[in-house]
Amino acid sequence: MSNAVIITTLAISGALGIALFSLKGLLDQLPAVFESWHRARSAWRAKDGEDGDGGSGE
C-alpha cells in the first residue's frame, strides 16, 4: 500500500513539473507573439493608408 502512495506522489509531482515547465515556456513566448502582432497590425494599417482614398474613411 505504501509503495502505491509513493508512486502516485511521484507521478503527480512529475506531471505538475512538466505542466509548469510547459506553462513557463508558453509564457516566455508571449512577448514576442504580441510584438509580432503589433508589427503586423501596424503594417496592415500602413497598407490601408496607401490606397489613395485620401484618408477620409468614407
Rank of each mutant, 00 (worst) to 15 (best):
L16T: 00
E58P: 12
D53V: 11
L23Y: 03
F21K: 07
D51H: 13
D28Y: 08
R41G: 02
W37P: 00
D28F: 04
A46G: 12
R45I: 11
I6L: 07
E50R: 13
R45E: 05
G54D: 09
F34Y: 10
G55W: 04
N3M: 05
V5W: 05
A15I: 02
A43R: 06
H38K: 15
Q29E: 09
I12H: 00
D48S: 10
G17T: 01
F21E: 02
F34K: 12
D48W: 06
I7V: 12
A19V: 04
S56G: 14
W44L: 11
N3S: 02
R41M: 08
W44M: 12
H38P: 02
K24M: 11
G25S: 06
A32N: 05
G57P: 01
L27P: 00
G49R: 15
T9R: 14
V5T: 06
A40G: 06
G25P: 07
W44Y: 10
L26A: 06
L30H: 00
D28N: 10
I18C: 10
W44C: 01
H38N: 15
D48C: 09
E35G: 02
G25Q: 03
A43E: 07
K24R: 14
S36C: 10
G57V: 01
A15V: 04
W37N: 15
I12W: 08
Q29A: 05
I12F: 09
M1H: 13
A43K: 08
E58L: 08
N3A: 08
A4P: 05
I18D: 04
F21I: 05
L30M: 10
S42F: 15
A32C: 01
S2Y: 02
S42L: 11
S2K: 06
G25M: 10
